[in-house]
Amino acid sequence: MGEKMSRKPYVREVPKYSWFFRRPRYMRYMAREVTCIFIGAYTLLLLVGVMRLSQGQAEYEAFLAALRSPVSVVFHLLALGFSVYNTATWFNVTPKALPVQIGEEFLPGGVITGAHYLGWAVLSLAVLLMAGVF
């Protein structure tokens, strides 16, 4: 029925594979979305690490040795960049995702975002301390 009502249907042309190059906003969206490729790949690497850890000392140490390669350094740097970007985008929407209402007023978004960044910094430092990096 809908088809008969419109004599000249407007078909908006959207390139299926390259639409996100059109605006910086779309590019930022896609940059955020592709972070999942690096986070997913890195998580699978962690899973392999746990597997090697469960197999014994020799196997685990071979896994650590295998991490020492230029390809691995490049992968880690890319993954680090994308994961930090993911964290920033995730925290920046927290005022929308977790609005805090006190009485009639809403807590300013900056406070919620700031609290997340602070928590992130404290947690990261704690992990680095626990791991004996410092």
Binding site: T43, L46, L123
Partner: peptide, 10 residues
């Protein structure tokens, strides 16, 4: 993963 992935990668 927003909280822990970056430091694990580090």
């Amino acid at each position: 993963s927003a909280f822990v992935t970056p430091v694990l990668i580090l």
